[in-house]
Amino acid sequence: MKRVDVAYVLLFDEQGENVLMVKNMGEKTSYYTLPGGAVEQGETLEEAAIREVKEETGFDIEVEGIFSIGEAFFEDRGHHAIFFTFRGKIIGGEINISMPEEIEEIIWMDAQKAEDYIHITNDTKGLINSISSVPYLLRERVINKS
Rank of each mutant, 00 (worst) to 15 (best):
T57F: 12
T57R: 06
T57P: 12
T57N: 13
T57I: 02
F59W: 09
D60K: 14
E62W: 14
E62V: 15
E62F: 13
E62L: 14
E62H: 11
V63C: 05
V63L: 15
V63W: 15
I66W: 02
F67P: 09
F67C: 12
S68Y: 09
S68H: 08
I69H: 15
G70F: 05
E71T: 07
A72I: 07
F74R: 13
D76M: 12
G78E: 09
H79D: 14
H79V: 09
H79L: 14
H80E: 06
H80P: 03
A81H: 10
I82Y: 13
F83W: 13
F83H: 14
F83R: 01
F84L: 10
F84I: 06
F84S: 08
F84C: 08
T85A: 10
T85H: 07
T85I: 04
F86I: 03
F86Q: 01
F86K: 01
F86C: 07
R87W: 09
R87T: 02
R87K: 03
R87Q: 05
G88R: 02
G88P: 14
G88D: 12
G88H: 13
K89L: 13
K89S: 04
I90P: 11
I90T: 06
I91S: 03
I91R: 12
G92S: 09
G93A: 04
E94Q: 07
I95Y: 06
I95S: 12
I95P: 14
N96M: 05
N96V: 00
N96H: 10
N96L: 07
I97P: 07
S98I: 04
M99R: 11
P100F: 02
E101L: 02
E101C: 01
E102C: 07
E102K: 12
I103Q: 02
I103G: 07
I103V: 01
I103D: 04
E104W: 00
E104M: 08
E105T: 01
E105D: 15
I106M: 09
I106E: 10
I107L: 00
M109C: 06
D110E: 11
D110L: 01
D110F: 00
A111T: 02
A111K: 04
A114H: 00
D116V: 12
D116A: 12
D116Y: 00
D116W: 10
Y117L: 04
I118D: 09
H119Q: 10
H119F: 10
H119Y: 05
I120P: 02
I120T: 06
T121I: 08
T121E: 06
N122I: 02
N122W: 13
D123E: 09
T124M: 12
K125V: 09
G126P: 02
G126S: 10
L127G: 06
L127R: 01
I128P: 08
I128Y: 00
I128R: 04
S130H: 01
I131Y: 00
I131E: 12
I131K: 08
S132G: 09
S132K: 05
S133C: 04
S133K: 05
S133T: 05
V134M: 09
V134C: 02
P135I: 03
Y136D: 02
L137R: 05
L138Q: 11
L138P: 03
R139I: 08
R139Q: 14
E140M: 03
E140T: 11
V142E: 14
I143M: 06
